[in-house]
Design a protein around this nucleic acid. Structure first.
Length: 571
RNA sequence: GGCCCCGUGGUCAAGCGGUUAAGACAUCGCCCUUUCACGGCGGAGACAUGGGUUCGAUUCCCGUCGGGGUCACCA
């Protein structure tokens, strides 16, 4: 009896590997095209790091006219979560990172190198495992988890390197006859790779990001097929990336230390290994310690966090690109209007160590990104967000979309656009005072500053609305009139004039503006008041002044009668 | 603990044997300005540490310290 008999006994129905080698021929791509992938396990949580990897993968594939595909690594059935795949495909779609090939929804896929879900590739892995057994490079192991545990404990107490290797690999030296007898006897087993590596020898590997890395050879007889018949990550990776003709594996650097194993596997199976790019994880500062962004502790680790907060996808992508290649920032400044697709990403410019996640910076990018949007785009994106997360904002925006567009257009499209919205969840409080329903339903405290005497305030408001304000005025005229009003009140017409002779005046034109602004919006800070007034129009301005007067409770001749004012307000 | 990777301002980072050690975010001040935001100008702020090598080290080598990763029938 020989290896072939053993292999046939274990995998009687497995096809010869030639079948698959023919079924998945080399890809017809131009020289230098990168075939790469995102290969997450469906745990029901899309990590920002996964997005980062996908962004890099997709960009590189695109830049080289290669292929970016999505493969689902669901070989651990214990961890599997329902509809996690659609979560992943939806996230990629949302961030404009759709794969060229692979899974495109929970159960649909496209491309000729599938199936793209590992659980559906069981027969393929078994063929290759069988092949390895036939070559004497893999063997059944009958050790139970309990036995393995004992071995490990022994090794630990003896302070020797733990693992299944050398003399510890009991089943490695079973004869074919012994193995066959055990199997026929119904003993449970898994399949292990028979390593010919030596721990005292070094291998050198060139990683596309980390550069030269030295490791001892792998001498562990790792499991390749588990008790449930599915492969372990290592084996699936090698088989899949060979068959799918991956040229570049981009993955987190937690995999760096299994490099020797993977290279060995590729070599022993007679496959050409892909290139590897191990990217540093995004970190978080936790009380002075750096650690990986954790799905359990850090809400910002989840891609859904950004969606819920309403941070534009573009901002997240730009931030991530920024971490990936620091020259992105310069490029962006030089090309503010170009598409992200026009930026050329370079792997060798990626940092070898993990960057601390910087929410402040992300938000800053968010502000810049949104400041470049047109009012229409702000409207569309904010509305889409509001529909999901903020019904009140949705109502505001939808009730009179033409009006909302005007509001969103304040100081937009200028050379120096406003940058006061970093995320859609900021928007409501930014513009709600422009909506009468909301404005009048709120309690306001009218924080007047320098001029706070009710009589002065009321006089300013009365004079302004009766004598000075005109919807038809252009901005210069409008402001000149506020100066005129300041003069009539005995204040300085110019701030400079006031500053030169502060003792001469009680206030200046800026203070008068503040009175108008506060009466109008109940805020001290707003965007350009001229634009606000233009949008509001004289009637609504007048009404707001009535409301302000009631709030100040002053007894001037005209509004002795508060009831009268309220009546006016109702009109 | 073994093995591997990494260590430039608060953060992200240029730099690759000779630099006044870029830039961005954050921070502080000034200017612009009817407020805020924007914008402009300026300030403060860094090569973990000890030894080498060298005419000269942030750059190269070794040690120390610090951080991270990995040692599963999880990926």
């Amino acid at each position: 009896m020989d290896y072939k008999d053993l292999a046939d006994l274990i995998f009687p129905d497995a096809k010869p590997i030639e079948y698959y080698e023919e079924k998945y021929p080399a890809r017809d791509l131009k020289e230098g095209a990168i075939v790469t992938r995102f290969a997450p396990s469906p745990t029901g949580f899309v990590h920002i790091g996964g997005l980062y990897q996908s962004l890099i993968a997709k960009k590189l594939a695109k830049q080289t006219e290669g292929v970016f595909f999505l493969r689902i690594e669901d070989t651990d059935q214990k961890r599997e979560i329902k509809s996690a795949v659609s979560g992943i495909t939806a996230a990629l779609k949302q961030f404009k990172l759709e794969p060229d090939e692979g899974m495109i929804s929970e159960n649909e896929e496209k491309g000729k190198y599938g199936p793209y879900k590992q659980s559906e590739r069981k027969a393929i892995y078994q063929s290759y495992a069988k092949h390895l057994i036939e070559l004497g490079k893999a063997y059944p192991c009958f050790c139970s988890p309990e036995e393995l545990d004992q071995i490990r404990k022994k090794q630990e107490t003896a302070k020797i390197r733990p693992g299944y290797y050398g003399v510890w690999a009991k089943c490695r030296n079973l004869t074919v006859e012994e193995a066959i007898a055990k199997i026929k006897n119904g003993e449970k087993y898994i399949i292990r790779f028979k390593s010919n590596g030596r721990e005292d020898r070094k291998i050198q590997h060139h990683d596309m990001i980390k550069g030269k890395v030295d490791f001892p050879e792998n001498d562990q007889d790792i499991v390749i097929i588990k008790a449930d018949g599915l492969p372990t990550y290592h084996f699936a990776h090698v088989v899949d990336d060979h068959l799918m003709h991956t040229t570049l594996v981009i993955r987190g650097d937690e995999w760096l230390s299994s490099m020797p194993l993977h290279l060995q596997l590729f070599h022993e199976m007679g496959f050409k290994p892909p290139k590897y790019a191990h990217i540093a994880p995004i970190m978080k500062n936790d009380n002075g310690n750096k650690r990986k962004l954790s799905k359990r502790k850090d809400p910002e680790a989840a891609v859904s966090y950004y969606e819920e907060a309403g941070i534009p996808e573009d901002a997240v992508n730009e931030y991530l690109l920024n971490i990936a290649n620091s020259n992105f920032e310069n490029w962006r400044r030089a090309n503010p209007d170009k598409s992200l697709d026009d930026f050329t990403l370079q792997l060798n410019k990626m940092s070898v160590s993990g960057a601390l996640f910087d929410m402040v910076k992300l938000l800053d990018i968010g502000k810049t990104v949104i400041s470049r949007y047109t009012a229409e785009r702000v409207y569309d994106e904010a509305l889409a967000w509001a529909k999901q997360y903020d019904p009140e904002l949705q109502k505001m925006l939808e009730e009179d979309s033409a009006y909302s567009l005007k509001v969103l257009g304040i100081e937009r499209g200028n050379k120096k656009p406003r940058k006061d919205i970093a995320k859609w969840s900021d928007l409501k409080q930014n513009i709600d005072y422009m909506y009468d329903d909301i404005f009048y339903s709120q309690q306001h405290d009218y924080p007047y500053q320098v001029i706070k005497n009710p009589e002065d305030i009321n006089k300013i408001l009365e004079l302004y609305i009766q004598k000075y304000y005109n919807d038809a005025d252009d901005k210069q005229t409008w402001f000149d009139k506020i100066k005129d009003l300041s003069g009539e009140m005995g204040y300085a017409r110019e701030v400079k004039e006031y500053k030169q002779n502060p003792e001469k005046y009680a206030a200046h034109v800026g203070d008068v503006s503040t009175v108008l602004r506060v009466a109008l919006t109940s805020r001290t800070n707003t965007p350009d008041m001229y634009e606000i007034m233009q949008i509001l129009g004289k009637d609504r301005i007048t009404k707001r002044f009535y409301a302000a007067k009631i709030a100040t409770g002053a007894n001037t001749a005209e509004n002795k009668n508060e009831e009268d004012l309220k009546k006016k307000l109702k009109k």
